[in-house]
Design a protein around this nucleic acid. Structure first.
Lengths: 148, 148
DNA sequence: AATTTACTTTACGTTTACGTAAACTTTATC
DNA sequence: GATAAAGTTTACGTAAACGTAAAGTAAATT
């Protein structure tokens, strides 16, 4: 038994660096379904996984609604009628296309950042050069008399 | 002269499949700065590039404010004082880290989609199998008499 | 001249993803 | 048993990114 199986709301919040408010909100929107002991929420490791997926989804630009759709779909898929399964397969295909697009976007962004960085470094080198040149000039004519 | 140099709002909107409302909103937020002929906006190819960047940013989960920050910073950088240049370099570094995170996220997502797809296909194969078995059974005992 | 078409500003409405405060209960600690 | 700590619900507030009229202008077409 290496894995902890239940978590409090603040444990999860701390682990993933979100507020408890957010966690409750995700439950409200049907993305998490913690058990209860009285009023208190008790999160399972499944909930934990889902929270992780929610946050990754957000980083990838997915809305909560989109993520919920996927969760729901996957749950339905597990009940396993043929139509659901086929639907899931096509949706997986679509998501894959989305990921491809994102990979392209990232690659583009990286290239542009490369050229941006290069330009920055060039500009910096230029500045350094001018500084050195000025220092040389100062030796020829020291103290270039301030303008009053 | 291969490149068109000016665009109307609806040309851009159509090309990038956004509403004119969005384009005006981006201007409002300081992300685009089209020239004017009287009241009418005239977009340059620089504006076009920026719009492309805005939309890519959105796909990558950047807010308009974040994108604007980058635009502004880059503009300042072009004026080229040393502090700005160094700041830009560190920001580029941060963005690179963000992209790395996103690449990880995407890789994870792809793996999970692989296993998801596998499970789907397994489940489907299972269903097919049962269908065949049922057909076989029908031959042994045809018309399994409906329950009234 | 009248109409259509594209564009404009102004402004209120909407959805998403929480923040924040208030008032209350439950659980742990001294 | 008082008090602090963590949890709860309810509810109003907010920023972002537009949607959606409403009402007007300007240019091109019939």
């Amino acid at each position: 038994m290496a894995e902890k199986t239940t978590y409090s709301i603040s444990e999860l919040a701390k682990e993933f660096d979100v507020t408890t408010r957010s966690v409750r909100f995700y439950e409200d929107q049907g993305l998490l379904k913690p058990a209860r002991r009285g009023q208190t929420r008790i999160f399972s490791s499944k909930d934990r996984v889902r929270l992780k997926l929610i946050l990754r989804g957000k980083r990838m630009g997915f809305s909560l609604a989109e993520t919920k759709e996927l969760f729901d779909l996957w749950d339905e898929t597990l009940t396993g009628n043929e139509k659901q399964l086929l639907k899931m397969l096509t949706i997986l295909d679509n998501k894959r296309a989305q990921l491809e697009q994102q990979k392209n976007d990232i690659a583009q962004a990286e290239m542009e950042m490369d050229t941006a960085e290069a330009r920055c470094r060039e500009a910096l080198a230029d500045l350094q050069k001018r500084k050195r040149q000025q220092k040389g000039a100062e030796k020829e004519a020291p103290e270039p008399a301030e303008q009053k």
